[in-house]
Design a protein around this nucleic acid. Sequence first.
DNA 1: CGTCTTTGTGAAGAAAACTTCACAACCATC
DNA 2: GATGGTTGTGAAGTTTTCTTCACAAAGACG
Lengths: 216, 216
Amino acid sequence: MTEIMVVDDDQDLRESMAEVLEGAGFSVTLAWRGEEALEHLARKNFDLILLDLVMPCLGGLELLGRIRDKAPRLPVIMITAFASVENAVAAMRQGASDYVTKPFRIDALLASVGRVLEEARFESCRTSLDLDSVLSSLSNPFRRKILAQLEQAGALRFMDLCRRLELKDHTKMNFHLKILKEAGFLEQNEDKLYLLTTQGTQALDCVRFLMKKLGD
Amino acid sequence: MTEIMVVDDDQDLRESMAEVLEGAGFSVTLAWRGEEALEHLARKNFDLILLDLVMPCLGGLELLGRIRDKAPRLPVIMITAFASVENAVAAMRQGASDYVTKPFRIDALLASVGRVLEEARFESCRTSLDLDSVLSSLSNPFRRKILAQLEQAGALRFMDLCRRLELKDHTKMNFHLKILKEAGFLEQNEDKLYLLTTQGTQALDCVRFLMKKLGD
DNA sequence: CGTCTTTGTGAAGAAAACTTCACAACCATC
DNA sequence: GATGGTTGTGAAGTTTTCTTCACAAAGACG
């Protein structure tokens, strides 16, 4: 189910948007203002955010910046009644995916949502990883061991992986597997077996390259 | 000034060793037992540790392990009255640099210290960095920016670096510079100008390699 | 000389990363 | 259908990393 968050201080608009989006088959979370949106964001993974540019306290642009810090690739559509080139440019420079002006027609909004989601899907399969998460994933020796084991063994079940790494606490393994999964380095197949993705293999190559380059 | 820590529970021996080492031009820190040694280690950078194998509470071998966790390359000379092959082998396997038996002659101890320090110096210029510190240094985007700036500008003064990165709080800069310095990526010349080391340049190369390899 | 900028240090606080614990759903199998 | 291994989740606690604050020594400069 595609998860969408709508952030707008106008209650009527917020709820009518929720209705429309749910009608179109999306799961919708509502937020009244920026702080609330950030809390939702911390708890849940969204596929798209609809964001009002003008909001009390934490403005839409600043909120967009904060969202970018947390989730650099999460698509965000900005919505505003005050359409100005400056605002639009500023929003797009901050990484907004689209920019819709109020009042808007339902079908225009849905078209924008559909298009942005489609781009994101395309984008995500185009091996786009961000450097921070790649490097911080790899900076943990335990996670490197996981990758190395998987490369050697091909595919492993959860418990076998634990045993190979002589780990008694399986929740720790879960924690690191989750990070590696989010970084795009490994995935589970239909039998729940863990295996490296192409990026995972490449990441290991990179580590070897680093080691060679830096001696040690 | 070369910093040496002496860890021994025998007060007389500890102090006579301190006297000898200070006479030889070293700066000496004394620790009575393992816990104290670890505290010193957290606060200060040492060049060498002299460690009694037999100590109450935290034994020398276990302490050696703990030291290895914190500082994988810090030379440690083990000292013991109970010379046995098993102990010696165990200590060397844990990464001790040398193994001296009590009672020892002053010149034998100083010879060992001199030799181990010499090896460490040789080792450290052989570009041996450990992968964890390399990767975690590079996983911070701010630190990557510092490296990039230095590569572009050649050498920079502290405040100029701050200004280029639009940083108002200079202590934050100090924090990250320290990490990069410890990772061996940059150094200060005689005029206090910061500049990249060979390893620093190579690290940046590695980052570029990663980016190319992983797309984005 | 006093004052301002530079270049730091150390400690306290905040945030992020990591570990551990308590629990539960699911499956095989006896 | 009880039992035991597998595969997880969420929350609490710990440790590490990062930021901020308070302060100070050293040099530049009027």
